[in-house]
Design a binder for these strands. Structure first.
Lengths: 249, 249
DNA sequence: TAAAATTTTGCAGTTATTTGCATGTTTATG
DNA sequence: CATAAACATGCAAATAACTGCAAAATTTTA
């Protein structure tokens, strides 16, 4: 049986039953559980299934809400936010991208911090509107409902006029040769202008996305000042980043 | 049964009944109460439920402060929204002000309506982001936390570029001599430019605020096309409005 | 077609996750 | 303040996952 055959069978079963179990698949397809696990891993990397302990669930292809999306890797993102929040200083002008990591960051900014935050994310704006001191500037545009952020050319123009001290950017791909990358072209343009508008660039990236690249390039790696991830900065995964002078937290 | 399946079932039950009990869940899902407790703990850490002694409650939507504010005269505002929603036509470009009446309106726009909505209100944008067809354009600016709307000079400039078919405007004061009035100067400027940008002006006003005036003038009464209130249009309170050609609903 | 290169697979050893249970502590309520 | 229910914590068993490696299968190349 070819690997691709198995993959098709797994996807069919998933569509039918909403879930598959590694053990059961192993019996039915007459291969080891390790193979099934590798299959599911591969299908997950293609965003075709949602892998969990013990099997996999149907990937919700309906426009999944922001909250559902944001639960993936939530613990890692909270850890990253914990580290990143320490970079915030009183009086700063901050730009925050529309990532779920930034939402976690917004939740834990200390009450006594007085700052100005530019954002184009609806949930981040809602969150920060409960903060007593932070002045929130929302960057308007066409609303992308799935991601709950605004996008568009106007957005890029608006950001162009901003001058910020620090920029917190969530990302899905960072790598040495291609730098910061994004799967969506519009978002890549928005992030590019955010970086142009800021003095100090903090990229927040969960370790599994380090050394990966997406379709569209945002900026070369040299533009970035700090990379924050949930794992130990001593990890050798960062060696090449350190070599070119990046700070790892 | 996979852990994530249980989580989904718990969330579904919560949505349905607003609450779940650990003991009952334990019986229904055939796992120990400890497991249920761990499930609820995990869901709480993801901000999906509100855990309490004995079970969990449905996580209430944030922006609550705004909603709490808006509970004043909520029934009247719902009635007004019911009437106003009938004015929306397919394909229209709509501007909605940041009033609580407009939030009620946003909640009841029929699923099959296809339109473009400009707004500068956070809760309205969040509400409309759940609508399948409406394109939402958020007008950015400095966030007024109490009212959950953006304000500022940039806002007025942005609105100048819009050309809308219909404008739904909530108001706190309308009267014959001063026209539309507002207690806040910035808001009065924003509303003024909204009206300039629209072909057809619908003012939504609860009956108790009719014939009252606030500090700052928005536009003279002649600019307004329709007044929607919760009471019978035949009421003599409207006689003077009708005399100058306003439609009352 | 045969050989080489590549990919896929299963296995063993190790690590991580999930779950139920026992224990002691906290909370709600009369 | 008494008491039962709910909770937290640590532990152990079972299951699942990851890692590296070598054998097997497949594809590419000569």
């Amino acid at each position: 049986m070819l690997k691709q055959e198995r993959h098709q069978i797994i996807l069919d079963k998933l569509k039918l039953n909403k879930k598959v179990l590694s053990g059961k698949l192993s019996e039915e397809l007459l291969v080891s559980e390790d193979t099934i696990r590798r299959d599911l891993k591969e299908l997950e990397s293609k965003d075709l299934v949602y892998k969990v302990h013990g099997g996999a669930l149907l990937k919700e292809n309906r426009t999944l809400s922001y909250e559902q999306r944001s639960v993936a890797d939530i613990e890692e993102k909270k850890k990253i936010a914990q580290k990143a929040v320490k970079l915030i200083r009183d009086g700063q002008v901050i730009i925050m991208s529309g990532s779920s990591t930034n939402l976690e960051l917004a939740k834990i900014i200390p009450q006594e911090i007085n700052a100005t935050v530019y954002t184009y994310s609806l949930p981040i704006a809602v969150e920060l509107s409960h903060h007593p001191l932070i002045e929130v500037i929302f960057i308007g545009g066409k609303l992308n409902k799935a991601a709950q952020v605004t996008v568009g050319v106007d957005l890029v123009n608006s950001i162009y006029h901003i001058s910020a001290d620090i920029c917190f950017m969530g990302t899905d791909g960072i790598n040495l040769s291609k730098g910061l990358t994004e799967p969506d072209w519009e978002v890549s343009r928005v992030k590019n202008s955010m970086i142009d508008a800021s003095n100090y660039i903090v990229v927040m990236c969960i370790s599994s996305k380090i050394m990966t690249a997406k379709r569209y390039s945002v900026v070369p790696i040299e533009k970035i000042d700090v990379v924050v991830s949930e794992i130990n900065p001593e990890s050798e995964i960062f060696n090449e980043f350190k070599a070119i002078g990046l700070t790892i937290i």
